[in-house]
Each structure stands twice: as C-alpha cells, then as structure tokens.
Amino acid sequence: MEDVDRTAWTGLAVTVVALAAATAFGLWRRRRDGRLHAAPAPAPLPAVLTELGVQEGTPATLLQFSSAFCAPCRAVRRVCADVAETVDGVRHVEVDAESHLDAVRELGIWRTPTVLIVDRSGRVIQRASGVPAKGQVIAAVAPLLEPASR
C-alpha cells in the first residue's frame, strides 16, 4: 500500500514539474518564434550560398530551409513567396535542409523552418527560425534594396 502511495506521489510531482517546464518553454518559444534578428558576423559565404542557388547581384534573397517533417514550412513559403512577388529585387529560394547538411552545419542552422536574408554581395544579414511576419520581412529587406533605386 505504501508503495502504491509513493508511486502516485512521485508520478504526480513529475507531472507537475513536466507541465510547468513545458509551459515555460512553450511561452518562451512563442515569443521568440519567427522573429528576425541580425545575423552574427555577416561574413560573405559565396561558395556555400551559390551552391544553394543564391545568385550574386540579387539585391535580397530569402533563403528558406525546409524539411519533410515540418508543418510551419508551408506558412513560411507563403510569406516569402508573397514578399518576393510584391517587392522588386527580392528572390525566394527554398532548399531541403536534409539534402544540404554540410551547408546547414556551416550556416549554423538547427531547425526548420529557418530563413536567411542574403544581400547582393552574399552576406547573411538577418535570420529567423519559425514563421516570420510578412511586415517584418519587408522591413528587413527594404534597406538592401535602396542603393539600387537611387
């Protein structure tokens, strides 16, 4: 009887801890998900980016990493394709992360979807994991387009 009690109390305690930890993680992730931020050390990576289909000279490329087991990738595709269609000088390139694991390692990508914003000289300017808001993407590519229109 005492054993049953102990199992139940341990199980209950583990349940409470697991649910609290999961809730904290879920809230933290929800706040952060899809937010674009400046990429650390925007060094030019022409070779690896060219291999993925980024063309030098394109004012802004939205380079999206997707995978087969990724529900939000469809939403990101919609956002990026929409921006590429409505804003001149923006190109959307979607690659399958799993078939480019070397590039994934080199670019420091750990999950899909991840979007990199690449400028005309092949520097990764900004990046976001998750689904970015369309307005945020447009605001992020805007400074990359200006020199061309002047």
Binding site: T15, A18, L19, A21, A22, T23, F25, G26, R29, R30, F65, S67, F69, C70, A71, A97, E98, S99, L101, D102, V104, R105, I109, W110, R111, T112
Partner: peptide, 30 residues
C-alpha cells in the same frame, strides 16, 4: 508528457523540431 503537452497546448511538434538537429549530428553528406 512534455512533448504531447507542447503539441496540444502550443501546436509545437518537438520531434519535428529535433529532426534536423538529429540529422545534422548523425547525417553523412550524400
């Protein structure tokens, strides 16, 4: 429980998120 709860409450698929990380660590280049 953590994975099932995150999926139910936040629509977050933990296994899917971990998939690329898993392949990154284990995957050989094609």
């Amino acid at each position: 429980l953590v994975a099932a709860f995150l999926n139910a409450a936040f629509g977050l698929c933990l296994g899917c998120e971990a998939f690329l990380a898993f392949r990154r660590v284990t995957g050989r280049p094609l």
